[in-house]
Amino acid sequence: MDQYSESAMPFFFIINFLADEAEVFSEKELTNSGIEVDFPNYKTNKNPAESGIENIEWKAYPCTKEAYEKGFNMVQKHLRRGDSYLVNYTAKTLVETNLSLKNIFDKAEAKYKMLYPNKFVFFSPETFVEIKDNVISTCPMKGTIDADIPDAEQKLKNDTKEKAEHYTVVDLLRNDLSMVADEVRLKHFQRIDYLKTTNKNLYAMSSDIEGIIKPKYRKNIGSLLEKLLPAGSILGAPKPKTLEIILEAEDYERGYYTGICGYFDGKDLDTCVMIRFIENHDGKLYFKSGGGITHMSDLDSEYEEMKNKIYVPIY
């Protein structure tokens, strides 16, 4: 990635959650791979195919509350001991649908979409970092609420647990950006976005942070991303110990879920966090989802949030 960016060569990449596996593609290699990408400023397929499916079938089989509680209690134990302030705890859910991964990619509405044929698809609303004219910005998304609840936006902004979660991630990512940028500032705080889903509509809370890239990283995109990974919004704080907690509490491997992917056009960069993620494993589809846990979290609410995020944004 450093070599490509030093020579201003466009490329696309994916990096897994642990940042120990990556795939990097020139534009020609990406075309030959069969991978499809739909980003705000980069698309590989401008004419999505019709699915031919009028009545969408969608069934989810989340883990039991008792199974979820086992990992949740491990996380809470570490939070009470002060090992972490925020842990992003996730689970995988078997789903059954008459949609193929390709159908989902073509029809889902999201800011960022990617299809890796026969492996996974995601439809993410969350930017990781974006670079334009040597300005690097990030938009951590933390905190969700059912949009149908009366005064949902204000309740989300004022909820003690959600605020603590959001403040922690904003502070973490502001600190992360300061490793690769100067003049880091919080540009917009607690923006509320509306997300439509197949089950229920949600409000999500985001903030905008930006800075000026340090000269040593301006032509070294790989080195810059290496300093920032894993992504703080899907990990927690502090990073090293929180990663240990996640690996202890979760009973599956995330793989590319909650990793990042992005496109470098030869000058600027756009990347996203790979959430809202469906993976094909031995012919079965698994949806991976979760949320941030603090010492104020309660089991029932977090279990419901994990389930609420199991959806496809197709209308």
Rank of each mutant, 00 (worst) to 15 (best):
D2Q: 04
Y4V: 08
F13I: 15
F13R: 11
F17V: 10
A19W: 07
E21V: 12
E21D: 06
A22S: 15
E27L: 15
S33Q: 02
S33Y: 01
I35Q: 06
E36T: 02
D38E: 07
D38Q: 12
N45I: 05
K46L: 09
K46Y: 13
E50F: 11
G52M: 06
I53C: 07
N55A: 14
N55E: 14
E57P: 05
Y68N: 10
F72I: 06
K92T: 11
T93L: 06
L94S: 12
V95S: 01
E96G: 06
L101E: 01
K102R: 09
K107E: 11
E109N: 15
Y112C: 07
Y112P: 13
K119S: 02
V121F: 13
F123V: 07
S124F: 07
P125K: 01
E126K: 05
V129I: 08
I131N: 12
K132H: 13
N134C: 10
V135T: 11
C139G: 00
K142T: 00
D148C: 05
A152L: 08
A152D: 05
A152K: 07
A152F: 13
D159I: 07
E162L: 07
K163E: 07
E165M: 03
D171N: 10
D176F: 03
L177N: 08
M179D: 06
M179E: 10
E183R: 14
E183G: 02
R185P: 08
F189Y: 14
Q190V: 00
R191I: 05
Y194K: 14
L195M: 12
L195I: 15
K196T: 08
N199W: 04
N199R: 15
K200G: 04
K200Q: 04
K200R: 12
A204D: 02
S207N: 01
D208N: 13
G211A: 09
I221D: 12
G222K: 12
G222T: 12
L224K: 00
L228T: 09
L228N: 00
P230T: 11
A231V: 11
G232H: 00
A237E: 03
A237N: 05
A237M: 04
L243G: 04
I245F: 01
A249S: 13
Y252H: 04
E253R: 08
Y257G: 01
G259S: 09
G259L: 10
G259M: 09
C261E: 11
Y263M: 06
K267I: 08
T271A: 06
M274G: 02
I275Y: 05
F277E: 01
E279D: 02
N280M: 15
K284C: 04
F287A: 10
K288I: 08
S289D: 04
G292K: 04
M296S: 12
L299S: 04
D300E: 15
K307Q: 10
N308T: 03
I310V: 15
P313W: 00
I314F: 06
I314H: 11
